[in-house]
Amino acid sequence: MSHPDAAGVDSGHGAGETYSFAVAGIGIRIRTQGSSFRREPRRQEFETVVQDPDIGLRVGRRELGAESPGELVFDSGMVWRLYDEEGERVFRFFSPQSGAVPYKELRVGRDYREGEIVLHEPWQGVELPDPLEYPLDELLVVHRLGQGLGVELHGCGIVDEAGLGWLFVGHSGAGKSTLAALWAERDVTVLSDDRIILRKTDAGIRMFGTPWHGEAGFAVATSAPLAGILIVEHGRGNDIEILTPISTVSELMARAFVPFHEPEALETAIDVLGVAAAGLPCCRFRFTPDSSAIDHLSSWMRTVTDA
């Protein structure tokens, strides 16, 4: 019998592999049957031993068919579609090469806690691809968060020298990775330059780093209490505009990864973002991409924390 090592990988001896990691306190464990598989390097920072997983998945290989399983719940218009089959959620993944037959499928319970990933047999080599290859890993976490646990945002997050978390939210091209790189030159920890998860705790809103980094490559498996939220945009100077809670929630919802086809996920997102917007300073930050932006922010953050 083998045991998981510190990296959360159990090599096994012909009986398959166990691999586990955790994102925002959600422990995920997958087990294969008889084959090893590749693992995405960006998840390495998040690999850990998970004794009691929040999400447990088996991995198998067999031939998948082109026929749709059950009722279509959501079509991303791109690589994945979600179906409902007798109360079970079925994600199917397609590529131009696989045509009408999915190259992968995940069947999981409605609470997104237990299921099976099936890799379409004809497409796989000797070594299995990462069964949770993007975007499945992120989709799974986003859907599980929607079960009352939290919400993921398109944002960059930093932890200052006092241990407080500051969230910079923006669409692609808004400057999140630029800000992250500028912050990295100061005495802060950059949790992520592209994806941040917020969860409600007894002590307030907590923000977590994720593996799904942006161009600057920041992905740290830690968390911090959230102290402030800024919607970021490029500008002709550095300017901070205070937002009302309602405006903040509207702006955040437009930059959140919410599975809108799951009503509970929508309720969860509005709840978490509403609590954050009502209790924390929220602003729009227009900036120029140089160190003056960080000076401007640092000054504002001191004002907020000293108040």
Binding site: E40, R42, S95, E133, P135, S172, R195, H213, G214, E215
Partner: peptide, 20 residues
């Protein structure tokens, strides 16, 4: 795209960035 033969995200040389 993702999946087989697509320059999979599993490969750091072909896809190390998901976007910003």
């Amino acid at each position: 795209s993702s999946g087989p033969l697509s320059g999979s995200c599993a490969s750091p040389t072909t896809c190390s960035v998901l976007g910003s």
